[in-house]
Design a protein around this nucleic acid. Sequence first.
DNA 1: GAGTACATGTAATTAGTTACATGATTGA
DNA 2: TCAATCATGTAACTAATTACATGTACTC
Lengths: 191, 191
Amino acid sequence: MRNLKYAILGLVNREPMTGYDIKKAFDSRGLTNFWHAEHSQIYPEMKKLLAEGLVEYETVIRGEKLETKLYEITEAGRKDFHDWLRDDVEIERTYKDVFRLRTFFNESMNKEEYLTLLCSQLRQHTEKRDMLKHFIDLDFQKLPHFNTKQMGDYLVLDGAVRREKTYVEWLEHCIDIFEHGKAGDPVKPIY
Amino acid sequence: MRNLKYAILGLVNREPMTGYDIKKAFDSRGLTNFWHAEHSQIYPEMKKLLAEGLVEYETVIRGEKLETKLYEITEAGRKDFHDWLRDDVEIERTYKDVFRLRTFFNESMNKEEYLTLLCSQLRQHTEKRDMLKHFIDLDFQKLPHFNTKQMGDYLVLDGAVRREKTYVEWLEHCIDIFEHGKAGDPVKPIY
DNA sequence: GAGTACATGTAATTAGTTACATGATTGA
DNA sequence: TCAATCATGTAACTAATTACATGTACTC
């Protein structure tokens, strides 16, 4: 599906960037929650985009002699990116999650072992939720302007908080069942 | 991380299965939400597990002459699987999601274009949420017994419903902003 | 002078998808 | 007899991770 291609094109479409800048963007607060790539994947992909004529670069010297490649998007790149962006696609049937896979097989653990895992996950997801919530409180007291990158940043951060909040609630539900549940109890409706 | 290896071992640990059965399990109601593999990945992996001595198989004839391989887990396989199952790991920093990537770049669309995408996603995630909810209502009126595979099935289905419910709420929040929001409005707290 | 951040690449391996390829069984 | 399902594989390609490899710039 060339998703990495469009993630990079989208970033370079915002402003000219080096490969290193792309990598930093993939590690940033908002984006790292739903997309990521290592530099070993980024540099070859940028060479490919160059060969396809979707980006071009200018060599910029930093300091005395450090050569850096500042990439910017071409007209062809912009068109390709815009076509991808507007593409209405089917939702993914699978969002892989290794901890849920372990939960699927919880029958092969005893209650204490599984509860240990649940509590560790709960601690980590709670921390992450609070951190993300803190980022929103810091940067987004007020709704950003439309057609700015701040709006995108806000919407995906909001989505990440919701996702973590729900993960925490699910873990608490699992813990509740393993601590207090009895077979045959009516299941608690989610809504 | 060999996650596919352990997904397969976990299934074969429940009961002897063919490669085809594994594929069906990966397509089933609960599991398909958080793990999946094509048969072209499954069969070579099962050969590998065989070579590693973690499974063994018996050839079973179906009908007149159709040979099928019924795999079962070995003692070594059971130990390897149990060690993996109890392993307390760090949560993943990235859960990739292409639609959120598009949202991150929404600045390059006009309101109508992005709203079209949002509404399509909303319809699909609402349908999926309702379908998953229906599965729970059908199969899990009462809490299953502990240490049965039904408990694992229930917990991950419950997690999938929560995930879809939250996705729907996030999409509604995005739609609300793009239909009624104005820059500078106070952001609605998530909780 | 040392440590961290900046900066760019390749190699080897593992993971996953799509296409190619074949054949038997079952039920309408 | 036709279609769907059962059943098993390989080939080619794309995607992603981990390790290898090198050198500059900035700040303390």
